[in-house]
Design a protein around this nucleic acid. Structure first.
Lengths: 216, 216
DNA sequence: TGCTGTGAAAGGGTTCACAGCT
DNA sequence: AGCTGTGAACCCTTTCACAGCA
């Protein structure tokens, strides 16, 4: 298998998968064409075919792609044949929302722990998870083999939280705090900054019309 | 001014701005070099200079960029010299979190309304905003000149909510529901799907090491 | 005929390298 | 000397177009 898959390709694969799960579970379709997938996923047919072709030939010429099988292939490719354990750092507004987020379970993620530095939140039960003090973080990460940490703290505490998570064995971080995190090489970070996205929308509104590729 | 700025450029501009605000308000620095900005923003010095050069010359050779002035320039470019009114559709977990999100105000966004279809949530006060029934959506959007809608409903209700928002005059949508929305041309959409990001991280974990450009 | 798989072409974004101010 | 502004080179992604099967 050829490596060096770009991040944008991975993002699209994830979207294809999301759609395939819908087609499979909800709409009971058994085949899709590249054009169909492209349509419902915001890209082009050629792009879909090219993306998939990096990993093999999954379709039948003249028919399209078998939904179920392609879904399984993509799960395999993205590393989703196992369930992943996730911990949330910061049990404020965003942290709480994530702890009750319904789509994690059905998409293969289990939130197994939550942490906060605020004494008043420790012990709370949020979405079935008990909020623990930071002093228990390392132990819990190790015991429960947590590989992914979600940072949902205020900006000031984000870097420090990330350091703790990494020190406790986390190898990937999803960061909701609006700061760039410094992490050692080998640790993957993705950032979700609501305001950043809103600003992007403002730019489009201000300059008039979506910036080229967006809506389509 | 030359148009046709790529989405990735806009994203970076937004990050520069985020950093400049820190430098200005918190760290009281009055100049930054392209290298400095790049460092704290996850890109390269050349990229910073190139991005800014699309809009003019803001720096002094030999010294760097004046923090305050550059911040103002970027606010201008991104269309952030005005405050933007935002409405949240869906007052569940995520919606509630957004209604109390502390960074909106300081970054120029005002959440002025919230809507839900669930009778039991209507009338609730979340972060100072009263949850309204959908029947009041159009009126409120018009009265308060809401240009941006944040969709925080379950998947099933997302498209319909988007349609209502657009029908009521929204020209930009930030979508938290994990589905691709169909919107008329001219309406900008950005998607925030937590699971999608987590899947991206899994891919990196599975294939070993961040995919090239990520950590750096 | 219909749709995939894929080299080749086109298009854009990023990096280089250096001239040009301060 | 130090750091910006920028054309040119490079590289990577997307699009095109068509051969190849079902």
């Amino acid at each position: 298998m050829a490596r060096k898959i770009s991040e944008s390709t991975v993002r699209r694969l994830s979207r294809y998968l999301r759609r395939l799960r819908e087609l499979d579970a909800r709409e009971r379709r058994s085949v899709v064409s590249s054009a169909g997938l492209a349509q419902s996923t915001g890209t082009t047919a050629a792009q879909v075919r090219k993306d998939l072709s990096h990993f093999g030939s999954f379709g039948k010429r003249g028919q399209g792609y078998p939904v179920r099988a392609l879904r399984e292939q993509l799960e395999e490719i993205l590393g989703l044949t196992q369930r992943w354990r996730v911990a949330v750092l910061g049990a404020g507004k965003i942290g709480s929302a994530l702890l009750g987020y319904g789509y994690f379970t059905q998409r293969g993620f289990d939130v197994v722990a939550a942490f906060d530095s605020d004494q008043s939140r420790i012990g709370l039960d949020l979405g079935g998870v008990r909020v623990q003090p930071l002093s228990e973080l390392k132990r819990t990460f190790e015991d429960r083999r947590v590989a992914i940490a979600i940072i949902a703290t205020p900006v000031e505490a984000a870097q420090q939280s990330a350091d703790m998570a990494v020190g406790a064995g986390a190898r990937a971080i999803l960061n909701f705090a609006p700061v760039k995190l410094d992490v050692p090489e080998g640790v993957a970070v993705r950032e979700m900054d609501v305001t950043l996205e809103l600003e992007g929308l403002c730019y489009m509104l201000t300059t008039g019309g979506p910036a080229a590729d967006d809506t389509e």
